[in-house]
Design a protein around this nucleic acid. Structure first.
Length: 517
DNA sequence: ATAGGGTTAG
């Protein structure tokens, strides 16, 4: 046992039984309330540090309203308290609570701190509410603020804002830390400009494993598997040692580009050369890689022989996707049933099962699955597509009618559909056939969010040659994929769609994914 | 005494 440094004896509060009780309770509401009671009895109810620690743990326990009560009932809450709670809520994936704590900070006229900003930026990105975040932008932003904001742009796909930040970083000659460099690379990757990301990557003075991994993952996401592998080999020669995350990126890149032998090599290298232990994500990518390539037997054999213990639901989900892609209905049904047994409350498994039944023509089974879903109140996720025009994000759900230019957008789309139909587009009219896992089917395919967003983008930029960029929260459906290919041809425009898993670059009637999604 | 930022699957 190492010698314990004496720093704790300098700060007697570290040893206070109340503080220890809080640490011991951890992020669990019951024990926290007991520790709270003890703290009050001991007469420390007004201690700000203890209140802060207690409230922060309450947020971590998911009890943000309890934390709210604690903060609000303190006679003199400080900026630190609300900054910390903002951060804790954003960290816990509670963006609305994060913004609420930030509002308390503003309402109490407490001094603003860039610590709060980084948390608010994350919260806003989680809610796709970048404009709310930017409406804050207060004190002179520091490097960490830029990193957090770039990260928010990356998540939201907000290219215009990302470019604006880049301009400021360059013009203010900001110190290009390894954090800032990686954030820039990642922003460009996730906003669809993989070449621009590479330019930054090459320019950076300092690159660590995260920078390399971001760039490799970027190539993978854009379907440039060979570039991903090339960069990975360069990394092995000249860069830092790859870590487990790097290998997730490499394997995923192989899966999305059909590079089976390269992926198999990387998986072996990971274990033998770098001594890394594969996790669920790695197994999942391997199964996905075999599955996408149509090697369903290899995928099943990998699951049987190479995955220790019981494979998790992620692995079976990848397998199910492969069954659906390659129309192996019997295996698909078997896998789907296994998945439903593992995760009965997850609606997407049932949607996939119903799709498989639909594809194999067993409509009575489809009905049965849907009835179970209705009975259990399992709802699918709602799909939406975003397009940024002049720095403003426009959101389209299926059959969206709330946009002020709705009438014009639908008219433009109707005309566009006529023109692509003349060019040979035939809608894949059997709707169940195109319904991907979570997509609602109440609205016709004709008015899927991505079609509306593309129509809006084209309508707002006639005469321009800039690519149209769409961000979608779910996977793009087969019919939209087909329609957008035609749209790119008849409009002679590049259309870039980021879906839940990857990028599709549509140009001259073709897509960069080569139907490999 | 309590506090920030960049990477990964389906």
């Amino acid at each position: 046992m190492a010698f314990e440094p004496s720093s704790s004896s300098v700060n007697p509060h570290h040893r206070s039984p109340e503080y220890n009780a809080l640490l011991l309770a951890g992020p669990r509401l019951g024990p926290l309330k007991q520790a709270h009671a003890r703290l009050v009895v001991a007469g420390h109810g007004r201690s700000l540090p203890l209140t802060t620690k207690l409230a922060t743990l309450a947020v971590a326990a998911g009890a943000s309203s309890y934390a709210h009560l604690l903060a609000a009932s303190h006679p003199a809450p400080d900026s630190f308290l609300y900054c910390t709670l903002t951060r804790a809520a954003a960290h816990r994936g509670l963006p609305a609570a994060a913004l609420a704590f930030y509002r308390c900070l503003l309402a109490a006229a407490l001094p603003f701190s860039s610590f709060a900003f980084t948390a608010v930026a994350k919260a806003c990105a989680d809610m796709s509410a970048l404009r709310a975040g930017m409406a804050m932008a207060g004190e002179a932003p520091d490097s960490a603020t830029f990193v957090a904001t770039l990260s928010a742009c990356a998540q939201a796909g907000a290219l215009d804002l990302g470019r604006e930040l880049e301009r400021r970083i360059v013009s203010e000659r900001m110190d290009m830390s390894v954090f800032l460099g990686a954030a820039l690379v990642n922003m460009y990757v996730r906003c669809g400009l993989v070449n621009k990301a590479r330019e930054w990557f090459d320019m950076l003075q300092e690159r660590n494993v995260v920078t390399w991994t971001s760039m490799i993952a970027g190539y993978g996401m854009h379907g440039h598997g060979h570039d991903a592998i090339k960069l990975f080999h360069l990394m092995r020669r000249e860069g830092p040692p790859p870590n487990d995350v790097t290998f997730v990126a490499v394997l995923s890149a192989c899966a999305h580009a059909g590079l089976v032998s390269e992926g198999r090599d990387a998986f072996a290298t990971m274990k033998t050369v770098y001594g890394l232990v594969p996790r669920a994500e790695h197994y999942c990518s391997m199964v996905d890689m075999y599955g996408r390539a149509g090697l369903l037997d290899d995928a099943m054999q990998f699951i049987r022989d190479s995955i220790p213990g019981e494979p998790g639901p992620e692995v079976w989900t990848a397998m199910l996707g492969a069954c659906k892609m390659h129309k192996n209905f019997n295996l698909g049904v078997e896998v789907a049933e296994r998945l439903i047994a593992l995760e009965p409350e997850n609606p997407s498994h049932r949607v996939l099962l119903s799709n498989i039944y639909a594809l194999s023509g067993k409509m009575n089974h489809v009905e049965k699955v849907r009835n179970v879903m209705i009975k259990r109140r399992l709802k699918k996720q709602i799909g939406y597509s975003l397009i940024e025009i002049g720095g403003i994000a426009h959101l389209f759900r299926m059959g969206e009618t709330s946009h002020p230019q709705t009438r014009d957008i639908y008219q433009y789309l109707e005309e566009l559909i006529c023109r692509i139909t003349d060019a040979g587009y035939v809608a894949e009219t059997d709707s169940v056939l195109h319904e991907l896992e979570e997509e609602e089917r109440e609205f016709t395919l004709r008015y899927h969010g991505e079609k509306l967003a593309v129509a809006f983008g084209l309508m707002m930029s006639t005469g321009s040659t800039d690519p149209i960029r769409i961000i979608k929260n779910l996977r793009i459906c087969g019919d939209c994929h087909l329609a957008i290919k035609y749209m790119s041809a008849v409009e002679n425009r590049e259309i870039i769609v980021r879906d839940k898993h990857r990028f599709h670059h549509f140009k001259d009637g073709k897509c960069s994914c080569q139907e490999y999604w």
